[in-house]
Design a protein around this nucleic acid. Structure first.
Lengths: 199, 199
DNA sequence: TACCAAGTTGACCGAGTGGTCATCTTGTTT
DNA sequence: AAACAAGATGACCACTCGGTCAACTTGGTA
């Protein structure tokens, strides 16, 4: 592709340290965590942050890209699992678990018009679409549910409990179970609104 | 109760203007809306904000108290409706609708250790508990779902779509329908975690 | 109408923000 | 080992924030 020369080893290490520190700091302090604190946590000076990431928004987008890419690979791995319903549930479980650990749901909206983010998100949607279609064909989920629905609901179990002061670890599984039961065909009532089309 | 002398008429008017302006401003700009902008929108000086509300957090708590009180009265009104299942669904519809209009879900966590907020929240939990118990006894919702579950899930339909750039009005109804189907007894699978106890 | 407490104002403060840049350090290459 | 570009540094900048307060207005009251 592009003949970019590789990063110097110390620079590459600092970049990883910064990403990890930023994830932790955002998880603890929310979106308003400061660049200075992130730099301190990574053990570098503030200027180094801006050498690796043009702006704070760019740093956030980089984190989100990493998370979405992980989810994409999870979806791809489940694409030919024998039980399509179990495959979709497994994907949603991993998705919620990843988000639970670092509580990064809010970062996504903060970087929704970043080109890299939308690209990897579209890739995830494509892979997730395969899982949803297979689950629907197998009768594991109701026929009127779309990929967009699943993508939007993906974040819900963690969102539901994120206002709790000290939630039981794994409590999100309870709400994933309830929501997934709502996606099942048994006893499904007709949905009042057409499914959204993700941009 | 307390023999507090009533507010002067202009002060009372400014207080209402401030609360309304703050709701709008928070809805548009999120939690980081500035006190100065809120004052400008209300047509008063910044100092006036702090005469009515000790801190920005206090202002937020006042808004949240108002919302929770409204929900409490809605729950109370549904307490003796003929169809307990429909009554609970109606409450959740009003709750989501109220939140949809001003997108205030995030304000709740910002004021969770305010005494007034917890007081009115506990009152809401009590009234909502009546609705949930009646719905469960009538077989309208599954037996393993508690008030805490419903309270936590109450915000979910709006949360689900709040990352969309321009959601269809009423799209939240789609996700309320899915989630409510997940609360129904038909085809319910056992829940993997015990229900949380709200503090 | 005259008075005064209640209410309003906006300049001001210190703390903290994201971002810059001249200067210094260091990994890499020859 | 010499040389240099890539990278790291932290003082610095302009700006915004929540919050304060002395000076000024104004609504209620006797």
């Amino acid at each position: 592709m592009s003949p970019v020369r590789p990063l110097r080893v110390d620079a590459a290490r600092n970049r990883e340290l910064l990403l990890a520190a930023a994830e932790d700091e955002f998880a603890e302090r929310g979106i308003s965590a400061s660049v200075a604190d992130i730099a301190r946590r990574a053990g570098v000076a503030k200027g180094t942050v801006f050498r690796h990431f043009a702006t704070k928004e760019d740093l956030i987008a980089s984190i989100v890209v990493g998370h979405l890419a992980t989810l994409t690979s999870v979806a791809r791995r489940q694409a030919d699992a024998p039980d399509p319903g179990a495959a979709l549930l497994e994907f949603l479980t991993v998705a919620a678990d990843q988000r639970q650990q670092h509580d990064l749901t809010f970062l996504q909206s903060a970087s929704e018009d970043d080109a890299r983010v939308t690209a990897v998100r579209d890739e995830l949607l494509a892979c997730l679409g395969v899982l949803v279609d297979r689950a629907r064909d197998a009768g594991a989920i109701r026929s009127d549910v779309t990929v967009a629905d699943v993508f939007l609901l993906m974040c819900a179990p963690v969102h539901v409990i994120e206002n709790l002061s000290d939630p039981t670890p794994g409590l999100w599984k309870r709400y994933l179970a309830i929501i997934f039961d709502g996606l099942r065909p048994e006893g499904a009532n007709p949905l009042p609104q057409p499914a959204p089309s993700l941009p």
